[in-house]
Amino acid sequence: MFAASGLNSRNNRRQALIRILFMLMTGLLILPVLIILTTLLYKGGPAISFEFLFGNPTNGMTEGGIFPALVGTIWLVAVALLFSVPLGVAAAIYLSEFAAENWFTRAINLAIINLAGVPSIVHALFGVGAFVLFMDFGTSILAASLTLAIMTLPVVIVATRESLQAVPYAFREACWNMGATRWQTIRRVVLPNAVSGILTGVILEVSRTAGETAPIMFTGAAFFLPFLPESVFDQTMAMSLHLFVISTQVPGVPDELPFGVALVLIAMVLIMNSFSIALRIYLRVNKKW
């Protein structure tokens, strides 16, 4: 009575086949990541040392460390966040919680989506025009970070808006119906429940920003500058540009050096991402609905 019919077994075989096929495709997806990581570890690992992390590049960047670039990247990312996070979160809150659904809001949303699609080299040129020249910041951390901030803004906005919208509408209604203003509702109920999502989005964005090269190349990052920046008006070295420079522009760099730089860059990103995942887990623990 319950035995498989011909159709059943055909369907089952088909499903088994599809399952294996998709599994293989997923495997293919992980393969490049594994290869990159093992190559980096294998080739760049020997380069890592205390002097490498905390020393200056020497001898025409063919020897020595990467400390100025490491610090420079941290500066660039931190200053960029200083601009993009408050601005992006405020814009997302406005769009998700206050804005009426009309042509103006739709236009803004469209603009954000388009901004996210602008290639980074175009952002770089915009940064040169707007920040370096027009606002006269010169090539500086400030100009480079502002360029990065503009570039990351759409992602911060979208991530924030998504986490805000993941908070059930019923909670907002419950507050409004008790006479809470929109802002009271946002501050007391919506934000506390959205914060884990916002933070995760921001941190993932940070790790992406850290690796960007084009937007900082013309706006604030220097080829070789073995000093630590003292203010946002200084130029600085940066990991991503340093990697580009020693891999393509400088002759006679030993093989393990670029791999070492890449390894440190990836490690920064991975550490940041794991931190974001840990944070999300931590904030999720006491959240239930």
Binding site: A170, F171, W176, N177, M178, G179, A180, V189, K288, W289
Partner: peptide, 21 residues
């Protein structure tokens, strides 16, 4: 003032909607 209206007139819905606090 809407807030005063809502304060005077409480509302309970079909689906219980306690806040996640």
């Amino acid at each position: 003032e809407l807030a005063q209206v809502r304060k005077q007139i409480g509302m309970v819905f079909q689906r219980p909607n306690p806040l996640p606090i």
